[in-house]
Amino acid sequence: MNYEPSTMNHPMNRLNTLFNTKKDNLLSIYYTAGYPQLDATLDIAEALEKAGADFLEIGFPYSDPVADGPTIQHSSEKALENGMTLHLLFEQLANLRKRVSIPVLLMGYVNPIIQYGVENFCKKAAEVGVDGIIVPDLPIYEYESLYAKYFKANGLSNIFLVTPQTTEDRIRKIDRLSNSFIYLLSSSSITGGNLNVSANIEDYYKRIKAMNLNNPAIIGFGISNNESFTKACEYARGAIVGSAFVKLLGTENYLEKIPAFIKSIKK
């Protein structure tokens, strides 16, 4: 893997700094804002940083999350019932950079962003100190033609997904459009499955590694424990844990359990 950051015509943000300074075994945690309590967003972020997470993905909930399995569907439903909205999330994140210094991405579906206003969304995200955005249902064509200018103007990285079925041409194109990391799916699946390590998948990781992409790869979907995390880190710079952490949030005294959870993954 090429460790040089791709700065393209963007300034360095916290993500690039992270990938420049820390080479391996990066751990990112996903959680849904507004779950299990409406106002826990920053408490969870702070606890995760203290416990040793390297960067964060904060999900904003959507009513129809087609790329998500039951765990994240449930957290999204609860978060919406609790009253989470993009407006409220940005209010909560106003103090983000007073309490959290690791890179933070926002992750969610495109319709809430369209209703908020794409330009406003990008401005607001940059203003509160967000570093990147992951929108699974925003395809390349629409991103390039309608969205990229706002992302760029606000110094936000857009993160694209790659699956075992993504063709080499398309991966190259995604690499050109990316400027922090590429989100490698462990298989074609919704969130919350198990890490798939068949021979096919090993070939896929090796194929990606051999492509010498400009952007580092981070593996997500199906990473739930030390075993799957370690396996993923053999092939990529790090991995993302989502559903397994969201499940923890569904238990009592979850804030106190965060250090042990992170330790159990990183060992």
């Binding site: 790329a67 699974p136 249902d137 925003l138 064509y141 699956t163 993504t166 699946s189």
Partner: peptide
């Protein structure tokens, strides 16, 4: 050719469905 009827249409799908 891009799949649009005026302002409407397109293919807002996750990468998993792209192929």
């Amino acid at each position: 050719e891009q799949g649009y009827y005026g302002d409407f249409g397109g293919a807002y799908i996750p990468e998993m469905l792209y192929p």
